[in-house]
Design a protein around this nucleic acid. Structure first.
Lengths: 98, 98
DNA sequence: ATTTTTGTTCGTGTTTTTACGAATAATAAT
DNA sequence: ATTATTATTCGTAAAAACACGAACAAAAAT
């Protein structure tokens, strides 16, 4: 049974984006990427107090939500903000109180 | 073991607020409260396709996160946005990309 | 004093999230 | 061809989120 029918597309999207931001690690990552354009996941492993497999999961979460994207630079992967979706998230959030 | 040490207060707060907004029902509620000042939980029961006990949980979630507050008007409860925290959430989110 | 109205809490079950280490995959470097 | 580097996937476990109906609590109305 799909309870999501009945919510607008925008409500669903905003909930999705918000959920992706709903963990300190992921806030940290987004914050970093907004400040410094890009980073490698290895960089994050050194900073963050979590296992690399856990980090990978968080990155996947952000990627699946559309907030970031990864570009392969073998053997590394360069992560950046997905600007289109980030702007959409901003818009959806800021439109709430207008 | 507390992994939250190591994150800033603002990162933790933003994650908390985001998490609270991370469900369509809760986005819906916040949206409504921003539009029309206040509402009774009974009003929501009629609009939303969920059990009242489930709604109660979502309201509690929003309340615990500090995004809304309830005022007793027996036997009803009038819910409103918690403006201070909402403004803080706005600020924290919008400061991300500055 | 009952009954009605309104919401929360309880008990339960299912699903999702979070986390880890070990195993794996893919490419680069030797 | 091996080895090293980098990151994901797998297997597992514990905790939290989500949802429901039934039971309960509190105050208002009768």
């Amino acid at each position: 049974m799909n309870r999501d029918l009945g919510y607008t597309e925008n409500q669903l999207k905003l909930a999705r984006f918000s959920k992706a931001l709903g963990h300190p690690v992921r806030v940290f990552i987004i914050e970093l990427l907004l400040k410094q354009a890009c980073c490698y996941s290895g960089d994050l492993t050194e900073i963050l107090p979590i296992a690399k497999s856990t980090l990978s999961q968080h990155l996947k979460e952000l990627k699946d939500a559309g907030l970031i994207q990864g570009e392969i630079e073998s053997p590394k992967i360069k992560y950046c903000i997905n600007r289109d979706n980030w702007n959409l998230a901003r818009k959806l959030f800021n439109n709430l109180y207008k």
